[in-house]
């Protein structure tokens, strides 16, 4: 591997993604994100001086909520509830993996 083949990325801080970046990366419309934020369904976003910024975890959250709404015709509140539960499950699974080494689920 040549040294000049290696891409050096810029490390973004947790709350550094813009609304447009999250929307484009997760195939959602910016208005979809704004509507969900305004309805309190998207906790991984914060407003700084009138501009929304997002944590890295919001990428997974946006994808999950959009898929739930599309696949099951879920109302946004239900999709947000399921996303909350999945995030809680992710945390608990990480704890379980540490308590029981080698266990995946």
């Amino acid at each position: 591997m040549q040294d000049d083949d290696i891409l050096i990325g810029c490390l973004m801080e947790d709350s550094w993604l813009t609304l447009e970046q999250v929307a484009a990366a997760c195939s959602v419309e910016p208005v979809w994100l704004i509507r969900h934020i305004e309805e309190g369904l998207f906790p991984h976003a914060e407003s700084v001086a009138g501009t929304w910024r997002f944590s890295g975890a919001s990428l997974l959250r946006a994808r999950r909520m959009r898929q739930l709404e599309r696949d099951f015709d879920a109302v946004p509140e239900l999709a947000a509830l399921v996303a909350d539960l999945l995030e809680e499950m992710d945390t608990l699974r990480a704890l379980t993996r540490q308590a029981v080494p080698g266990r995946d689920r």
């Binding site: 591997m1 290696i6 891409l7 050096i8 990325g9 810029c10 490390l11 973004m12 801080e13 975890a57």
Partner: peptide, 22 residues
């Protein structure tokens, strides 16, 4: 296939941005 340098000190949930690779 991309060869990407992972910086020291990176942690879960962080995002590495590769400009112009989208």
């Amino acid at each position: 296939t991309l060869n990407v340098k992972i910086p020291k000190g990176v942690h879960a949930g962080q995002v590495i941005r590769l400009a112009g690779q989208g």
